[in-house]
């Protein structure tokens, strides 16, 4: 981790800290990359599920529309992922702003480690919520008499599945982000 960071520092044309006695370990280049990835993932997840409209003509019932806001679980999912997207913008800016001030960044790393896990809880619960409902929509549930929907609304289901996959990726990114913060904090402990 330190070596990639070392390289990133040279790329930016900054003064390179000698690796023999690094005063502060900085993984902010990796941190910013992951945060941008988180932003892209949460925006993709929200866009994919919001655009998942499908109207079908069903015999007897007439015209029926499938939309994400028909299910509360999907509404929660959209809200949670939007919050994650907003959070990623704010923290990317924060991360960029401390690039030149390593003294400040130790405190920031602590905040990051905690908030990342908090947002991880949010995104994981949203993925679980939407995933739980989507699974029933895909497979159906005979005991409760809930019919499966995906054979009728195939396009809708594809959008939801794509959105879920991306939000799962966002959860992984959040886990990595909190690990990175803790790792950096850990490597700054004076020996």
């Amino acid at each position: 981790m330190a070596s990639t960071d070392y390289k990133a520092d040279t790329e930016r044309g900054k003064e390179v800290v000698p690796p023999a006695a690094p005063p502060t370990v900085n993984c902010f280049a990796a941190d910013i990359t992951l945060r941008v990835l988180l932003f892209v993932a949460s925006v993709a997840a929200v866009v994919s599920i919001v655009t998942a409209n499908q109207t079908k003509i069903i015999p007897v019932l007439g015209e029926r529309e499938a939309k994400f806001n028909h299910l509360k679980a999907f509404i929660y999912f959209v809200v949670a992922l939007s919050i994650a997207g907003l959070y990623s913008i704010i923290t990317t800016l924060a991360s960029i702003s401390v690039l030149s001030k390593p003294a400040l960044s130790t405190k920031l790393l602590l905040y990051f480690a905690f908030w990342d896990v908090l947002v991880l809880g949010l995104v994981a619960s949203a993925t679980g919520t939407a995933g739980g409902v989507a699974y029933v929509g895909w497979k159906g549930e005979d005991h409760a008499g809930w019919a499966e929907l995906c054979s009728t609304y195939d396009k809708f289901c594809h959008h939801v599945a794509g959105s879920l996959a991306v939000s799962l990726f966002a959860s992984v990114v959040l886990v990595l982000l909190s690990w990175l913060s803790i790792y950096t904090l850990h490597s700054r402990i004076p020996k």
Binding site: V117, A126, G128, T129, G131, Y135
Partner: peptide, 11 residues
């Protein structure tokens, strides 16, 4: 954290 929140969210 991720496991428990996703599990309780799904349920």
């Amino acid at each position: 954290v991720a496991l428990l929140f996703s599990g309780s969210g799904a349920s």
